[in-house]
Amino acid sequence: MHSAAGFPPIASAGARILILGSLPGVTSLRQHQYYAHPQNAFWHIMETLFGIPKQTAYAQRCDQLQSLKLAVWDVCHSASRPGSLDSAIVAESVIANDIPGLLKHIPTIECIAFNGQAAAKLFKKHVVLETTIPQITLPSTSPVHASLSVAQKLAQWQTLQVRLSHPAFLSHAGESPL
């Protein structure tokens, strides 16, 4: 059985929203980049919503996510999984990332957005939080989840724009919205 291990988070001080996937797929692991599969809609959605050009170098895209107060990570630190399908993750093999530790390190995170049902289910099963934090499940950006078009996925992912511009996302120091 193939064991896959994820990446460190894309996160910086002041992040407001943590986007959690499940575990990087084969293409992402090969390229050592989140959402590297060319048919994955994640970077297309980030480009449309936040102006992060999907053709820009990966490091620059990561910097732009952080400047927008977005953080990205996966629920799973590692797991056994043949291929890239979330449904193939062997439940007993999951080792979760230290998401509670990240939330303590970056206390400005005010919302967790799951990139798909699999990430939400893995989180619920493997992560225990000592605090309540709003959580939303968005449609998976994976090309495997084709029940929704990219446009339909984009419409639901727009909630991130709303959350970032909502007054609740102002810093405690009173700085203006993003």
Rank of each mutant, 00 (worst) to 15 (best):
F42G: 11
F42C: 12
W43R: 07
H44L: 14
H44Y: 15
T48Q: 15
L49S: 12
G51F: 10
I52R: 02
I52N: 02
P53K: 04
P53F: 02
P53C: 06
P53M: 03
P53T: 02
Q55F: 06
T56D: 14
A57R: 15
A57G: 12
R61I: 11
R61S: 10
C62F: 10
D63F: 02
D63T: 03
D63M: 10
L65S: 03
S67R: 15
S67Q: 12
S67L: 01
S67E: 13
S67P: 06
L68G: 06
L70S: 14
L70P: 14
L70T: 05
W73S: 05
W73E: 05
D74I: 11
D74V: 13
V75L: 11
C76Y: 06
C76G: 13
H77M: 00
S78M: 09
S78V: 01
S78Q: 14
S80P: 02
S80Q: 10
R81W: 03
R81Q: 08
R81V: 08
P82R: 15
G83V: 03
G83L: 01
G83E: 05
G83S: 12
S84C: 13
S84V: 13
L85T: 13
L85D: 15
L85E: 15
D86K: 09
A91H: 08
E92A: 15
S93A: 11
V94R: 01
I95P: 00
N97K: 04
D98V: 09
I99N: 04
I99P: 02
L102V: 06
L102Q: 11
L103T: 05
H105I: 12
I106T: 00
P107T: 04
P107Y: 03
E110R: 15
E110I: 03
C111N: 12
C111D: 07
I112M: 04
A113C: 13
A113T: 12
A113H: 12
F114W: 07
F114V: 06
N115G: 06
N115H: 09
N115K: 10
N115M: 08
N115R: 04
G116S: 07
Q117G: 05
A119T: 02
A120G: 11
K121L: 13
K121P: 03
L122Y: 04
F123M: 00
K124N: 04
K125P: 02
K125W: 07
H126K: 09
H126M: 10
V127T: 05
V127Y: 05
V128K: 07
L129P: 05
L129K: 07
E130C: 09
E130T: 06
T131N: 09
T131E: 04
T132H: 09
I133L: 13
P134C: 08
Q135F: 09
Q135Y: 00
